[in-house]
Amino acid sequence: MQSNQAVGNTSSLIEEIIDKSGQPIELCFQCQKCAAGCSMGRFTDYSPNQIIRLIQHGLIDKVLDSNMIWLCSSCEICGARCPNGINMAEVMDCLKAMAISKNIVSVKNVKKFHDSFLGSVKLNGRVHEATMMMTYKIKTMDLFSDIDLGMKMFVKGKLHILPKRTKDRARLSRVFTRTANKQK
């Protein structure tokens, strides 16, 4: 990996993130096109280019503690416009994985949502929206928001009581087992 711009232990951090994300973050020259287009930039503590700058300075704790990595909606505007071909959404996914492995999750609701979603997939093979949302609400103890919306959807036949489950759950189970704790 070619991250020879960095010095000291920042070099190994940059190399680790380049390796895990597959993105050439050492090429970032802070043009801020990503920041200009960022869908979430108005709501987050750092912009995408600032996240890269923090990594270049070896300030990984600040990065992992940032709400940006969890509020990033993966809209992929940043990557589409980057003149250096850095797909920032991939970098964000890599940083989320690092944060999870270190048990530093700054926006806990988002992680709880992902857990509820994948829990439903693991159980049924497909997401069952009604139970997935209930699981999320119990995990976050946010029991009352969107109740009126849920009722409207139910009345309009958009939420089913029973899940549609896939048949080959043995294969599904193998996939979940083989990918558990297997971060790139």
Partner: peptide, 13 residues
């Protein structure tokens, strides 16, 4: 089966 959507790519490559 479900594609995994945002939840899979955000937490498990």
């Amino acid at each position: 089966v479900c594609c995994g959507a945002t939840s899979a790519h955000s937490t498990n490559h």
